[in-house]
Design a protein around this nucleic acid. Structure first.
Lengths: 144, 144
DNA sequence: CTGCAAGTTAAAGTCAGGTTTAACTCAATG
DNA sequence: CATTGAGTTAAACCTGACTTTAACTTGCAG
């Protein structure tokens, strides 16, 4: 038993079948096919899914995740070292986001209570463009 | 000039007119009306909008923001103290999210590189349900 | 009073990240 | 070899957070 069907893979990865098909369509993961066109997942794909879900928790979009995964070696199955490199890069990313959140935390009281009624001048805005890019707003967070 | 028209208010708050109308429809902000049915915003509303945008940056949904704003005094314009109470509560929220992110950061390398191919058993999952609730996935982040 | 920018509404459109459905095929068990 | 459960696809649908559009109305300058 070297590969997994979509049902088993869904169970092991903790991601629904429909999400797995969606990820495949979006180029985030791949699966071999049987003669009867059914998906067979290599166990190594579990790591990709793990990475995807973790990155999502950090607030990264699937598009960015796709780009990151695209940096893994194309021909061979990624080694532990390949994954470590990727993880290291995201570690940095995560640190940046943590620092931004700390700044938000430290400035929240002061900013709400202070005289800066215009968000355009407030330090909380503009300074944090990088965070804003991943904010909840569909398109622009700080649009006019 | 005690109140602002939607154009000026949009400019001062840094939020588009359409978003302001949307926020009003969703019960996040309010505006008085002129005889001709045009919106007139009290300056105090700028603080609400500031709060909304900051909370969004922290990854909170409009629904939760609406609930938080609903705790402000109904009759009178919120005082600095009212805002401070609200901010203090969100400060706590923010700290929780920061701690979760730090855990993610600390465990990322280990988890990706380790043998825990099943996310269901991985410490990164399940433990962080609260963060997951605000994750990028529309409905459930850790659904089966 | 004309003209025109700015305002109003409801309804439709957009985008991300999926889920659900319909119609059909595969695999394997009795 | 019939049935049944798992798999397949494309396409429609969903939520959140807005934007855009269409069809009018207001407000004010000239």
């Amino acid at each position: 038993m070297e590969t997994l069907g979509i049902g088993d893979f869904a169970a092991r990865s903790g991601v629904s079948r429909s999400a797995l098909r969606f990820y495949e369509k979006e180029g985030l993961i791949r699966a071999a096919r049987t003669g009867g066109n059914q998906r067979r997942y290599a166990r190594a794909e579990l790591r990709r899914v793990a990475f995807i879900r973790i990155a999502q928790q950090v607030g990264v979009s699937l598009e960015e995740i796709r780009a990151a995964l695209a940096t893994l070696p194309a021909g061979r199955t990624p080694t532990k070292a390949d994954w470590s490199r990727l993880s290291a890069r995201w570690h940095t990313r995560l640190e940046e986001r943590i620092r931004l959140m700390e700044r938000l935390r430290d400035q929240l009281d002061g900013c709400i209570g202070c005289g800066c009624l215009s968000l355009q001048r407030c330090r909380l805005m503009n300074q944090d463009d990088r965070l804003a890019q991943h904010g909840p707003g569909p398109r622009r967070l700080l649009d006019g």
